[in-house]
Design a protein around this nucleic acid. Sequence first.
DNA 1: TTCGGAAGAG
DNA 2: CTCTTCCGAA
Length: 260
Amino acid sequence: MQCSCTSSVSPLSSPYWSRTVLFPDWAYKPAWSPGSRQVQLWHFLLELLGRGEGGAIGWGSEWGEFVIQDPETLARLWGERKGKPHMNYDKLSRALRYYYNKRILHKTKGKRFTYKFNFSKLILVNYPGFPMCHQVISKSPHVFLSPVCCSQGRTIKQNNTVQPMAHPFLHPYCLPKPIPFVRALQGHAPLVSAPPPPGAHLMRELRLPLGAAATVHSDFPSAVCGWPTKSTLGWDLRNFVGGVKESETGYKSLGRRVEK
DNA sequence: TTCGGAAGAG
DNA sequence: CTCTTCCGAA
């Protein structure tokens, strides 16, 4: 166990958890790993985005926004990854549309092939003291938090190293105390890439090598650090995110199993 | 181009 | 469940 410092703490017993900043639901899902299911589309997109991959897709002008520059190429790439030779943009975009109800993505209307990840809005909801972090971000883009095991703002090494990692979703530096936040990061330090701060040319610096994801996940398996996931503890982040109605949680047409 | 229903695969 | 496939409508 690399992370003994947290496993003994029951997350639900902490008052912090009930009102702290949380990731959007989907952000907790680990990226592809050998034992688990296949890559998900949003993971794949983030991966390409993070690598600045060859022109098929790139970040847009707003934070979290991305533009599909070459839809059919992107579809081909996606198809290759999933072993679906007949993938095309029509199908890929249908998958994208399923993300709308899940609040993972939304469409940037009026901009062709442009979508936006739901990063910003979701993140600091329920953190009344910190309505606006964008300015902070653009001014100090490098203040990223490491996926550390810690408490009270004190970082603890893992395997002799504290791994630096750009975090795309969160702005821990926006918080008064990083206590709950740091904990929140450790279990599922999720993704590789960073959406660009508005108007910044920092993308290059924010990009992480592809290997980072694998590294992070192998070093910080969720079970080890004990960060509660929705699946294990029944948390539903949608409750923190502004009340998504059941009817909007996606796949509503796929059965009358509304009470899930 | 974009949307979302319907059915089906794994 | 997460798409994939197909398709009519706007």
